[in-house]
Simulated scan of single mutants.
Amino acid sequence: MQRQLTLDLGTPPPATFDNFFAASNHELVTRLRELEGALAAGPVADRTFYVWGEPGSGRSHLLQALVHEATGRARFLSPQSALTAFGFDPRVTLYAIDDCDDLSGAQQIALFNLFNEVRAHPTSALVATGSAAPMGLSVREDLRTRLGWGLVFHLTALTDEGKASVLKHAARERGIALADDLPNYLLTHFRRDMPSLMALLDELDRFSLEQKRAVTLTLLRDMTRTGPAPASAGRITGDEEPPPVPDAPDTPHDEPTDLFGDPLSIESVSASPEMGSPRASTRFK
């Protein structure tokens, strides 16, 4: 198996709803975005959520976005949180609990009690995440039952095809003439999570402007191996050299296919927030 390369691209931006790509998760994203406002407007029937999905699907991103964009008091909890942090506070509007299936036994009991308190206070809400549907969670039976009481959403991760479409759409928004073969190459040889891919696209954009060259595999090779880009452009870690990149001209080939006319439209992967159409500095956690 070919070893994937990583780039040191600095600290990623905060997780927000705008830099999350909703794909087929529009209803969930919309509900979470509107949750705090709905609580402020009056009684809300659905105030407890359980979101499950595979690693990399964006569970943590959504919880962090919920807390980051809250105008009132919100609390993010995880297996690394102190047991006392699971105590109910009537001043807290939103509770976001990540990886609840990795909580310790004591934390699970505390979450069970917190869940009951939230249900009893109509001005608060709770959103929890895990790696499996409630019935498949390795947690206490009473907690599993509580998690299944509210709204349950399966968070669907982007496919490789979807990731490639997002990269192409983001490139078009930046005015980048992205070589057709570049997205698949990035997915094959670099970290595959969307925050890393979008950060790499940003660096390619900057480097191409500095070099006044098209964004091609050759440019990527120069940026990661020998290019004169500053340290912010990222460096390859590990002992291996980057995989060979075929020498290609820095200008697009004269072919019938328009570099921007990719048949995979972004609407097939992101039609709402994520939410909304991706913006110029989009990331995905």
Rank of each mutant, 00 (worst) to 15 (best):
T159F: 07
L201D: 04
L7Q: 05
E267P: 08
P256Y: 10
S165V: 04
V51C: 08
A22P: 10
K163Y: 00
H189A: 14
R225N: 04
S138D: 12
T282P: 03
V29Y: 01
S104R: 10
A271C: 13
S138N: 13
P122W: 06
G56M: 05
L158K: 06
G227C: 05
R144D: 06
A38C: 11
R91N: 12
P12C: 14
T257L: 15
L204E: 05
T218L: 08
P90Q: 08
D101Q: 12
G87N: 14
T237E: 08
Y50F: 15
F76V: 04
L219P: 03
L167H: 03
R192Q: 15
A177V: 15
T6V: 05
G58S: 07
A40F: 04
P90V: 07
S78V: 03
G58Y: 01
A23V: 08
D193F: 01
A229R: 09
D247L: 13
S272V: 14
N25E: 05
T251V: 14
H154T: 07
D181L: 11
S81Q: 04
A110M: 03
D8C: 11
Q80E: 14
R59E: 00
F20S: 05
P79W: 00
A82F: 02
L35K: 08
A38D: 08
K168V: 13
A22K: 04
L66P: 04
E173I: 12
R213L: 08
